[in-house]
Amino acid sequence: MKSTDKKIEKYNSVFPKAFLIFLLIGFVSSCDHDTEPEDPNLIDRFGPFEVVQDFEASTDVADFSSGGSVVFTAQFNKNINWVITITGNTSGAVKRIEGFNRIINAENARWNGTTTDLPFFKNEMCSVEITIPEEPDYMDTAEIEVIGTRTYEGSLVTDWENGLNPGFTVFVQSGLDMRFDTINDPTGAEGGVFYEMSGEVTFADDLGNVAMPKDAFTDPDFSLSLVPDIVYFNVFAKKGQDAAEDIVVFQFMEDDNGNGTYDPNADDLYEYVIQDLTLDWEQYSVPYTDMVLSNDGGGGQRNPDRLTRIVVLPIGLGVRFEGFFDYLIFTEGAPLQP
């Protein structure tokens, strides 16, 4: 009994100290909180707008062909929506860069020569304008001369810049006002030259064709991956004012048996059909896996690395066809990013 009483007495003296220590631990541990202010920032949301640093471009001459870029800078007193619009004075190409920031710099406003609205930029003077949708009274400008356009990665079939590729063959049906030729015009989708296929053939569906053997492609090192999932065909096209029909068929012929030529009994043929061309340049891209198998002489297994020939057939269906085509190129991993 005496030892028990002593132990209870010991508890009576230990317990208050233990309680106070526990309180101290609780006090210290409860003081650690997240103090980062909650969004949105009130100044961003409701504060008056002020320009801290004027809008500027890092250069007034841009050469994108060597991988160069232009950086835009500005600073405001609060985060706000902004839009930078770059317009090619000759081509009409438009590039838009947008963001919601207080500071505009290389992280959010860098132009590498790409395009938002076709066509591509040419070697031309470009007008640059920055606007803020919530502040209609604010605008600032700059000018940039493009002396070298962006080089796009990919396997180029043709860009028509040097005319019809040597080795390409053209077959034109007899018809009314038949035009199968290159056109020198800076308003092309890319560069200053594009190809026209126009005419009216009443006795046949197609107006003719342009056959492009692989060894005549512009890219002398033309080579595609053997994985069809990652290979994309890209072309830029539009129709003319008088076009009554606007169907064009791209045929992709493989040399599956490796004899150097396309044999319908031994090789595959795939097709890509474009309909509903518009009056403005549009980009049309298709993964190799989505091309339609038209002839399975080679077994029906897609082998883009064995592509040997491309044929372009404008389809008029007995009425007038007007089509313009530019920049045929294969890319890998994703469609071309103009």
């Binding site: 909180h33 997240d34 103090t35 980062e36 202010p37 909650e38 969004d39 949105p40 920032n41 009130l42 100044i43 949301r45």
Partner: peptide
């Protein structure tokens, strides 16, 4: 407050 709302 411990944490600001929209501001520090």
């Amino acid at each position: 407050e411990i944490r600001g709302q929209g501001t520090t």
